[in-house]
Computed example of a mutant assay.
Amino acid sequence: MRLTEFSELMQTEFGSLTADSMLRDHVLIDFGGRTGAEALEAGIDPKLVWVALCREFDVPRERW
């Protein structure tokens, strides 16, 4: 998944303000206590970050 697709999915699912806040502030257990933004900066595949956020925020599986 490309970062542009990831950004589009985040904004569509959560709205731009919430998506930005989630990436900066929410700590993801799957990535050793990193936020989504930190995980992306560390080179973690955006698809993995997307799935982790979907799981933690109860997004229906068909939208993962």
Rank of each mutant, 00 (worst) to 15 (best):
21 S>P: 05
12 T>E: 13
25 D>E: 12
18 T>Y: 05
49 V>K: 02
20 D>H: 10
31 F>M: 08
27 V>K: 06
8 E>S: 11
45 D>V: 10
18 T>F: 06
64 W>I: 03
55 R>N: 15
11 Q>G: 04
42 A>T: 12
45 D>N: 12
12 T>A: 12
4 T>I: 14
32 G>S: 11
57 F>L: 14
50 W>M: 11
57 F>S: 01
38 E>C: 04
40 L>C: 12
24 R>N: 07
7 S>G: 09
45 D>Y: 03
59 V>G: 01
61 R>L: 09
14 F>M: 02
29 I>Y: 02
15 G>M: 04
54 C>Y: 07
23 L>G: 02
35 T>C: 05
20 D>V: 05
33 G>M: 10
8 E>Q: 12
5 E>Y: 15
37 A>F: 04
23 L>I: 02
17 L>I: 13
9 L>C: 08
53 L>N: 05
62 E>G: 01
54 C>T: 13
38 E>P: 07
15 G>C: 07
27 V>P: 00
52 A>Q: 09
19 A>I: 02
62 E>F: 10
18 T>S: 08
1 M>Q: 13
52 A>Y: 09
3 L>E: 14
50 W>A: 11
33 G>H: 10
45 D>Q: 09
44 I>V: 13
61 R>K: 08
26 H>M: 05
39 A>N: 07
26 H>I: 00
57 F>H: 13
20 D>P: 03
35 T>I: 03
47 K>A: 08
5 E>L: 15
11 Q>S: 03
55 R>Y: 14
9 L>H: 04
4 T>G: 12
49 V>S: 05
7 S>D: 08
40 L>F: 07
62 E>C: 07
64 W>Y: 06
43 G>D: 13
28 L>W: 00
51 V>L: 11
56 E>D: 15
8 E>P: 03
4 T>V: 13
24 R>A: 08
3 L>F: 14
26 H>D: 02
20 D>W: 04
59 V>C: 02
23 L>P: 01
46 P>Q: 06
62 E>Y: 12
25 D>Q: 08
64 W>D: 06
44 I>A: 01
24 R>V: 05
32 G>I: 10
5 E>I: 15
63 R>F: 02
2 R>G: 15
23 L>K: 00
26 H>E: 05
17 L>G: 07
9 L>P: 00
21 S>Q: 14
50 W>E: 09
62 E>W: 11
24 R>H: 09
53 L>G: 01
20 D>E: 15
48 L>W: 03
26 H>S: 03
12 T>W: 09
60 P>D: 10
8 E>L: 11
11 Q>H: 12
25 D>P: 00
23 L>F: 06
37 A>W: 09
41 E>T: 14
5 E>R: 15
40 L>E: 05
63 R>S: 04
19 A>K: 01
57 F>P: 01
25 D>H: 06
42 A>I: 13
10 M>K: 00
30 D>L: 01
18 T>Q: 08
31 F>R: 06
63 R>V: 01
27 V>N: 01
48 L>I: 05
51 V>M: 09
31 F>G: 04
33 G>Q: 10
45 D>S: 12
45 D>M: 09
23 L>W: 04
47 K>R: 09
4 T>L: 10
64 W>G: 05
52 A>W: 02
18 T>C: 13
